[in-house]
Design a binder for these strands. Structure first.
Lengths: 231, 231
DNA sequence: CGCGGCTTTGATGTTCATCAAGTAAAGTGG
DNA sequence: CCACTTTACTTGATGAACATCAAAGCCGCG
């Protein structure tokens, strides 16, 4: 069992303006007073599906997955989230319990903020309320359109989109350490692990990707992009 | 080309309390003053993908689909919405343009409400703001979990879920007129029309469903429910 | 009454899951 | 640090699920 540490303040958090830009000093102090900042190690489960939902999280560093476990103990991943994302903001106003489990894919620092303080701010600060509905729209757009687009693709296109997500959205590089296992990619796109591996081997043989242990290099970005759209 | 009529007031709208329950008389009059109530006939396109998004709609009667058309002119349906649903509430705060086209599946009455009035109410009425974020959470939950669940199923399960959606959520009956074509079901679950038809014929041969023209009767609800979960 | 869209069935090939078997890598306890 | 165990990765073979192509009947609508 790993140990969870509580770390120091985040007065100059670079993500402060993503959601809390319209708070005044007093309101910001209020949020700070009910905020817990935590760090989780790789592979830790932050929340279990069904846990009471009294707070939401935002990621400062690291990477997490939202997932459900079925009756056969098989996991199905809904989405992966990166620094700056607000985890379960979509759910806190309409759910009593976490609808998905949340686990880290690497060492992850989060801020946990209670629902009640957010609800109070929504009621009393109109501009904050507008920021919240805007952010909720952006989050749902991202999840929904990502799932919608992938539903039309076959396996090559689905795998290509996942790799491009890490390259473009997470690491902003064509050379990075893949933070998920082949099985997790399979759980994310609802395909078998074997066929995910086969597809990635194809990409390697076609000189689209190179592998070196967990490291991945995109050698033909244009073709990968094309596969993710048309494949 | 069909003609769109503007119809009368909706002071006693049964859906008023779904979203506008916390407005006072004055605020409600304001909403009324910027509201347009319209009726569309079957098959009309209410909004095209890319149209300017300055208002949202809520359905009083009827049925609509949200969809996109791809480069090959093939439609892909994101979701189907029934009376009481708030169409594009998820999108109005974060999108300048409609991300999906909206078309009617049957004669449909809608109320169209301008974004600006909604935004003003969010800023000035905290309880309304809470109602909006709660409603947005419910809408996104519905779309996301429906897509997430169906992604794990094969075609029998997917088709079964669609039929159960109409039976349970829309018509509250085991006997109804199917409001979509086989092709539209295919567009909704990303399968070929032929295989949707084959699956429905299987259900007929297995005495799970009966057909009579566009009418459909669910003869073995339990089995259909089971297929929608396990299939 | 004829045209176009919807529906249906069959035949064929592609895509994918599953089973099997083995290698490599990573964690675990002595 | 090494033996041991587990988990991740890989490839091949086989069959199931599904798309596609083709042909024909049906039905509503102008």
């Amino acid at each position: 069992m790993k140990i969870t540490h509580t770390i120091k303040a985040c007065e100059n958090c670079i993500f402060r303006n993503l959601l809390f830009g319209s708070l005044n000093q007093q309101e910001y102090r209020l949020v700070n007073s009910v905020r817990a900042e935590k760090v989780f190690f790789k592979g830790e489960i932050i929340k279990h599906e069904g846990d009471e939902l009294t707070s939401f999280l935002y990621l400062r560093t690291g990477l997490v997955k939202l997932y459900k476990t079925d009756h056969a103990q098989k996991d199905h991943i809904l989405s992966i989230h990166k620094p700056g994302d607000f985890i379960s903001l979509l759910h806190i106003f309409s759910n009593e319990f976490y609808p998905y489990s949340i686990a880290t894919l690497e060492k992850t620092e989060v801020c946990e903020v209670s629902i009640d303080s957010i609800k109070n701010l929504i009621k009393t600060n109109g501009n904050f309320a507008i920021d919240v509905v805007k952010r909720m729209g952006m989050i749902s757009d991202e999840v929904i359109s990502s799932r919608f687009d992938k539903a039309q693709l076959q396996i090559r296109g689905k795998v290509a989109s996942i790799i491009l997500y890490f390259a473009d959205q997470v690491y902003q590089s064509h050379h990075f350490k893949l933070p998920v296992t082949r099985r997790e990619i399979a759980e994310l796109i609802a395909m078998s692990t074997e066929n995910v591996i086969r597809t990635m081997s194809e990409f390697k043989n076609d000189n689209i990707l190179q592998f070196n242990g967990k490291e991945i290099i995109i050698s033909d970005y244009e073709r990968l992009l094309n596969i993710s759209k048309m494949g």
